[in-house]
Write a protein that binds this DNA or RNA. Sequence first.
DNA 1: CAGTATCCATTTCGATACTG
DNA 2: CAGTATCGAAATGGATACTG
Lengths: 242, 242
Amino acid sequence: MKSTYGQYCPVSLASEVLGERWTILIIFALSEGSSRFNRLQRALPRISASTLAQRLRSLEESRVISKQKSVDGGAIEYQLTDAGEDLVPIVKQMGQWGQRWARDLEVEDLDPRHLIWSVHLRLDLDEMPSGRTTIQFEFTDLRKVDRFYWIVVNKRKVDVCLKHPGHEPDVCVASEILRFIEAWRGFRSLENEVKSGRIKVTGAPEMRHAFTSWLLLSAVAHVGRQRQGRERTLQRRNKKSY
Amino acid sequence: MKSTYGQYCPVSLASEVLGERWTILIIFALSEGSSRFNRLQRALPRISASTLAQRLRSLEESRVISKQKSVDGGAIEYQLTDAGEDLVPIVKQMGQWGQRWARDLEVEDLDPRHLIWSVHLRLDLDEMPSGRTTIQFEFTDLRKVDRFYWIVVNKRKVDVCLKHPGHEPDVCVASEILRFIEAWRGFRSLENEVKSGRIKVTGAPEMRHAFTSWLLLSAVAHVGRQRQGRERTLQRRNKKSY
DNA sequence: CAGTATCCATTTCGATACTG
DNA sequence: CAGTATCGAAATGGATACTG
């Protein structure tokens, strides 16, 4: 598949850059500050290393990103160029469109690693205790391997752990993953879910009660959904739709 | 290649819809009023019938377009839904980005059928004579089969002909195709090119002189280019860059 | 006109393993 | 950490021919 369209048209020239699988998501992740190879992989857990490497090369060739050794370590960092920064508003608008109009989620869309990565980027550190704070997430409908995640906040640094961090969590959150995602997306009230215990929060009372104020929710949680939910949609056969 | 990303993220849900090859261009063409299968093919001369059909189906499934029998004929028409209309500003921004930042054109990007289709959509009918007016375009660096095109304007209807329409043109335009495209894109002054004869316009004097006012130019011709031109760019080997 | 059906060469991408 | 190398299954999409 050639990537060109045979047209002088500026929309098609832009499509060559944005139209490849994963590219838009990489730009979005870069705009959120994930500038290293490894962090990009964690933001996009389903991308393979080779695909990510290929996309980064091709974005560099299009001069949408640039590559540098970071000043502190010798680690390599990717940055949006001016041209890349100009794509960010477009990508954000696509996110708004997705919130308004995209299809309902299905089981395969619920990768918990991606979810936790998103959550750890949107914690309100000013609302959180000043000492080290650890939140455990448990997705009760997933099997052991996928079930537990920890976010450790310390001195305004936020880390994701896929293994138990070795000390006791301050707050434990337990929920079905879809339910948590729907609250995160703004489709359900987080407060209601917590009050009713459908999202169960445990830990010391002052921590437990503060918890909902720590989550900033998805960046488009406030954007109103326009698409009719599954109960009113066309029948879609052979698809479990959530 | 599955089209999903395993993420709840609204950007990735939107990418599923927009990220397929040709899709963005189809939405753009629909937004310009090309609502029939045939006209879409003429707007996008390099798309195959099967690919276009597949994309239209998939856009319908995503509820970005809908399909109707037109009221007048029995012909089938595709329309943007509300969700589809909400994509139009995004696509237009992509066009602006393309004008600012996209790569330089290469030979394969210069399909004259696409160019003529674009031109015929952006004629200023109010500036044109009231009777039937025929413009002949000749791209002097192309071979016979690709060389000549005619646009016939009559009663505010604009038609493209790939064969001689059977009557004499009122104005004949002759130019290298890239030169004409650069003027059309706003990268060169059309007036200058015509004055200097590098774009040669012939015909009755009053027609010939009015001609430049008929062309509205590309919709983003006024957007300033940010990317440095080829003379200052990194060397790109093995590529003829225009 | 508005597609569908079929074929097949090309491309893509994820998995796995490996490297400095 | 930041990738590269290799492989194979799956998908893509252009060409051609055909249809109501």
